[in-house]
């Protein structure tokens, strides 16, 4: 049982990153940290795709020169796209946080909600 987990530590890391990221998103009142949590969550998924592409003794598809085993390049391409999406999302999220900070003078969700309820 434990051996199974140790041999597949990469999948354990994937699950841990998902959990840690989601926990920060849900639990932390700081909006910037929520965005960081979202990034950790997404990074977990990226690593999952990369790790399933690995072949034992394989080289990167671009440099292997047509000989021998090479790792599956398709997940790499997918994740390149997903990273671009993630960067755009982070940029937009941070722009919104800046806007919220201008308006309410805080990046903590509880403080902002307090200000909103006072109105």
């Amino acid at each position: 049982m434990i051996e199974d987990f140790l041999l597949r530590y990469n999948y354990v890391v994937f699950a841990l990153l998902l959990g840690i990221g989601l926990y920060i998103v849900i639990d932390d009142e700081n909006l910037v940290k929520k965005v960081i949590g979202l990034n950790i969550f997404q990074t977990g998924i990226f690593l999952f795709f990369i790790t399933v592409a690995v072949r034992d003794g394989g080289s990167p598809a671009v440099t292997h020169g047509g000989e021998g085993t090479f790792v599956n390049p398709l997940p790499h391409v997918l994740i390149l796209t997903a990273i671009v999406v993630g960067v755009s999302l982070t940029a937009l999220a941070l722009a919104l946080v800046v806007r919220i900070h201008e308006e309410y003078g805080s990046i903590r969700e509880d403080v902002v909600v307090e200000v909103l309820e006072r109105d």
Binding site: L38, Q42, L89, A93, L96, R99, E103
Partner: peptide, 17 residues
Amino acid sequence: TGRSALAALKYLIVGTV
């Protein structure tokens, strides 16, 4: 407005998940 930014950020976080 601040309210719409907050609503959009909430949507962004939940929607991205």
